[in-house]
Amino acid sequence: MNTKKILLIPILFVFVQLSAHAQAGDDGSCQVTDTDLAAASSIVTELHDTLITIMKDAEKLGYQGRYAQVEPVIQKHYNTPLIVRTVLGNRFWDALSEAQQNEFIRIFQQLSIGTYADRFDGFNGEQFVELQRTALPLRGQCPAPAGKEPPAKRILIKTELRRVNDDPVSLEYLQQYIDGQWYIITVIANGVNDLSLKRGEYSDVIKKKGFDGLVEDIKTKINNLEKGSTE
């Protein structure tokens, strides 16, 4: 082996180490990178673009058409299993059967999509504007000590819905990195966190009518949205 080749070995070794490290940064580490921020931002943009489309074509699409356009975006980018688990509380969720859990995920998602389809039913020059992308501070050691889960990577995308002749609505999207992908885990509208709100509301319903009562109420709500009656 000549001198040149001998020199090459440590250089190659360093290179391999570096690239391995870079890869760990992509999916193993808990630090939020610029790529992460861009990915989270593009999810919000995709949702907003869809909303503008259904607002502009609201009449032509009708409720069902708007529902069909929003459905894939919500299914892809909202982590509904995590959302419903948090809304009902971990311990309550774990006590449900798998069938009950799946049923609840399904109807909760239907209600979310239905609410979007019902609310964004016309266009009046509205505009969504991104204001800020923030990586939230990690809540735990990174890298995680042996035997412990790494802290969750989370990003907050602050946006605003600007309206003609009306105050803007602040919309903030909290996202979490789960299994190699960014997901919206809650939306905060003018300071009202949708998830906390539903948590308070649903726990009241469960206390009065039980879990089955809540499921029935949500189904009625979905039916009313379909029928165009929001009473």
Binding site: G89, F92, L174, T186, N193, R199, S203, I206
Partner: peptide
């Protein structure tokens, strides 16, 4: 504050714990 709800196991509503 937005994150606490995802982290805090003890924030479960005690009335709902079975």
């Amino acid at each position: 504050g937005y994150e606490d709800i995802f982290e805090d196991e003890d924030s479960d509503d005690p009335a709902l714990i079975i």
